[in-house]
Nucleic acid binder design. Structure first.
Lengths: 331, 331
DNA sequence: CTGTTAGCGCCTTCAC
DNA sequence: GTGAAGGCGCTAACAG
């Protein structure tokens, strides 16, 4: 069907040289007479020759490619991170490939295996919490694995994340100071480390305020807009609605507001604190505070850590914990 | 650095069979005694062997991979399309790879070339409007190229898009009926076909209403949130602010509202009609109508068209134009 | 049913 | 400076 693309042989023949010379021209290594080089370059351009990266990678045993597995590609936070990583890696001559795990461990495993098969040189992962065995095996084999946003229990890989415990505690203390135990919490599944850590911070704050977790209403969401919306609708049905909400991520917060709105509850009724990036929130939420997670900073750190391993041969494990900014209330 | 991954030879040796047998087991073609198959499968699992996809693709001259180039991966509309395509293609045994062109023709070219080098079997593109030569060359070589959302001038490829002209005309007529020429328009660059076509529809509506384009205030944005925000801020500075806005996409609309808000203009002051998907808009905009572009429908159509070419060997060019739903004002 | 072999496109010694 | 030749890991004929 597709006309077979040109090979290095075709180019060599057309230019009247050997394949070795063409290769040398393309990779600018070895000596080639200027005149010949010029000629070969012209032929390449004219034929629109694209070297077969599959063959090149196979031979060189380097794919110059990095794989990234994300739990939700429709979440702009993750995509902003991804975009930053891509830009920086490209400058180092790497290409970034993405797959979406849909926050589902078995899809995640499939994605990881696809990348492994492609001989991706590094794996960047915001994990579902599963697949620890697989990741450990990769680490044991000396593969480069960098986790971000979320740890995976039992996996000692490079890591970039936020200090979830402290910032959750800070945020929750703030709400407790204002409203006492009259607060609802939209958490995530325990499988996901960010959720677990945020819960730890939240419980610490609760304990220090002399309360007990049972005094609060907990909703378990899935870090998705839909689950936040469910929480909002359930919230609306409560007879004694809490005065404040603490939400573990941006999407659930959007969803929560949508749920309230659909149920006819005025959004000002409840003060909200949320993790994540909520760029359009100022349009509708005037009682919202945000624990801001900077995607650009995270993306830059990821690119740097990957490059350090791949180019500089770093071997020791590295972890970076960022302290997110708690931005009090838009107004 | 990385421990060399196992090869098919290692597996063959460990299992005491030839590489051909291992290959047959993996690809479940050819005859293998059940007993042997079982044994080989065990060895594979135990070694955690991952076949080298590079080598396989090189040999088979099939990468079972599709490339997708998007102008903005932080726009949830595009990512929703991408996610749908990925799900459907995966069922057909293909993997989808993404790159972000940042709506920049030269980055787009680079992305296309990377995919060409990877011998991606098809290219799905929401184009910047540039690189017509490159695309035509690919088509001439028999490559599969499917455009969506935007055409590329002079390129006769498969295409999925919305009827921008008609829906822009419908929307603009609606606004003209209510407000006459007291309308501002946030358009995009002419380079992008959607923008051009929407402008055509808009001008038709204007002409039919007996007005002239000069009666209106036009802002040229870049289909980004930032450019919409700029428009909003400029809007706020006008002495006679129009009563309505027509915006060419979702991101610019969010931005426009943010610009108004930042300038202290109440959002209800202006009625807005916007293309795109604005899921959180009901939270803040009660005078907004949407020309809804369904990402799932588009994604399904894309996957189907690609599969038709790759699996069923379709050769004729196919185009599908969807008529987006004009959803009048929320509630 | 299973093994042997050739070769996909490229890069990299090793001769000349 | 340049060409010839071998091999990366895999699959697809072809033998047996």
């Amino acid at each position: 069907m597709a006309a077979a693309p040109f090979t290095i042989k075709d180019v060599a023949q057309a230019a009247g040289v050997s394949t070795a010379t063409v290769s040398r021209v393309m990779n600018r290594n070895g000596y080639v007479k200027d005149e010949v080089r010029k000629h070969v370059e012209d032929v390449i351009k004219q034929m629109n020759y694209q070297p077969n990266i599959l063959a090149r990678s196979l031979k060189q045993e380097r794919s110059r490619t990095v794989g990234m597995v994300l739990p939700d590609m429709t979440n702009p936070y993750f995509m902003a991170v991804a975009r930053t990583v891509q830009q920086h890696l490209m400058q180092q001559g790497f290409h970034l490939l993405y797959m979406d795990s849909d926050d589902n461990p078995s899809k995640e495993l499939e994605a990881i295996q696809v990348f492994a098969g492609m001989r991706t040189e590094a794996l960047i992962l915001a994990g579902t919490g599963g697949n620890a065995d697989c990741l450990n095996q990769m680490l044991a084999e000396g593969k480069t694995v960098v986790l971000f946003d979320r740890t995976v229990c039992g996996v000692q890989a490079d890591l970039i994340m936020d200090d979830n415990r402290s910032s959750a505690k800070e945020a929750m203390s703030y709400l407790l100071g204002k409203y006492g135990p009259d607060i609802g919490i939209i958490r995530g599944p325990d499988r996901i480390s960010t959720s677990m850590e945020r819960t730890e911070g939240t419980r610490q704050a609760i304990a220090e305020a002399g309360c007990s977790p049972e005094d609060f209403i907990w909703f378990e969401g899935g870090f998705t807009r839909r689950s936040g919306r469910e929480a909002g609708k359930q919230w609306a049905k409560l007879t004694d609605r809490p005065k404040a909400t603490f939400s573990y991520n941006n999407e659930m917060t959007y969803g929560f507001y949508l749920g309230l709105k659909e149920s006819g509850i005025p959004l000002e009724e409840v003060e909200v604190v949320s993790f994540g990036e909520l760029e359009t929130a100022p349009l509708f939420a005037n009682r919202l505070s945000v624990i801001y997670q900077n995607p650009v900073k995270v993306g830059e750190a990821l690119a740097e850590m990957v490059a350090d391993r791949l180019e500089k041969g770093r071997k020791e494990r590295e972890q970076r914990i960022f302290m997110p900014r708690f931005e009090r209330m838009f107004h």
